[in-house]
């Protein structure tokens, strides 16, 4: 008889796992699933529509037109001396990426309960696929942004594109991480407390007004020095300001403020992963 205890086991299912164990090996093994999920999101988005992928253009374009009209023309909010459509479009493009990552991730557990309840795969794959498929969307919207930029330059408007551009990949990463982290925290909590799902749309809207999407940070600094911190310590603010600075040459950010944003983002992401990992194991019973 062989001593069974010496036997090698591949998988051990126990009540409590290691919170920091990200199952990276499993995730690597399921990498094909990640891309198939991205493909599914992309294909099912425009199935049975006439305009198809054009919708990726139409939505931000309309938002820009409306913002230009309401906030720019009607309310007359400063745009740091930039052409209004460009100013808003830069903000919207960046903000949308973050907001889409956040909203989609925040419903991962509730929206996929049927799937998660029947088959095992590393759950982190789903939020990761959301970040990637939103990246595809983001690229399309960036293309639109470049077209509009080109149009303005052709008209003779000088845009001070500068070295801040090298920050772009870093900014993108920060937005993805922040959206993912916050989304995972919320999705983990909504498995038990549905209240949060009502708050999420409202919360994102509120957060947008605390971010420099429709106004520049310089205006807040000049007009409301008392409450300026509220906007400035919002990690998204320095990201968007840096984004505008890189592409359009206007924006108020410091390396320090961006650094603080990065630290907050990493902390939120870590917290998100820990909570997600903890909830993942048993959420099927409470969802």
């Amino acid at each position: 008889m062989t001593n069974a205890d010496e036997q090698h086991w591949d998988i051990e299912i126990a009540p409590h796992g290691n919170l920091f164990d990200l199952k990276l090996r499993d995730i690597w093994r399921y990498r094909d699933l990640l891309f198939l999920l991205v493909r599914r999101d992309f294909v099912s988005f425009y199935k049975q529509t006439i305009l198809g992928p054009l919708w990726f253009f139409i939505l931000p374009l309309f938002t820009t037109v409306i913002y230009t009209f309401v906030f720019g023309t009607l309310a007359g909010i400063s745009t740091d001396g930039l052409p209004q459509p460009l100013f808003y479009m830069a903000g919207i493009t960046a903000w949308n990426y973050f907001a889409d990552c956040l909203t989609k991730t925040s419903t991962v557990f509730t929206a996929n309960a049927a799937l998660f309840g029947k088959v095992y795969f590393p759950r982190l794959i789903v939020p990761m696929s959301i970040v990637v498929s939103n990246l595809v969307r983001f690229c399309v919207q960036m293309l639109l942004f470049f077209i509009v930029m080109g149009a303005y330059m052709a008209k003779g408007v000088t845009l001070h594109m500068n070295a801040g551009l090298i920050l772009f990949p870093f900014l993108l990463l920060l937005m993805a991480m922040l959206g993912l982290g916050l989304g995972m925290i919320i999705s983990a909590l909504t498995t038990k407390y549905r209240d949060l799902s009502f708050l999420i749309t409202f919360g994102i809207q509120l957060m947008m007004y605390l971010t420099t999407v429709i106004y520049p940070l310089s205006t807040v600094k000049a007009k409301f020095p008392k409450y300026e911190w509220l906007v400035e310590y919002n990690p998204m603010t320095s990201i968007i300001e840096a984004f505008r600075y890189g592409f359009l040459g206007r924006g108020t950010f410091t390396v320090a403020s961006l650094g603080i944003s990065a630290i907050i983002t990493v902390l939120i992401l870590l917290l998100g992963i820990i909570i997600f990992n903890r909830v993942e194991r048993n959420f099927v019973d409470t969802v």
Binding site: D10, E12, I13, A14, P15, G17, G117, K118, Y120
Partner: peptide, 16 residues
């Protein structure tokens, strides 16, 4: 539990 959809409250399963 065997399909790793949910975790046990106590005890363990080992699989190869």
């Amino acid at each position: 539990i065997l399909g790793r959809v949910t975790a046990p409250t106590a005890g363990s399963v080992k699989l190869k």
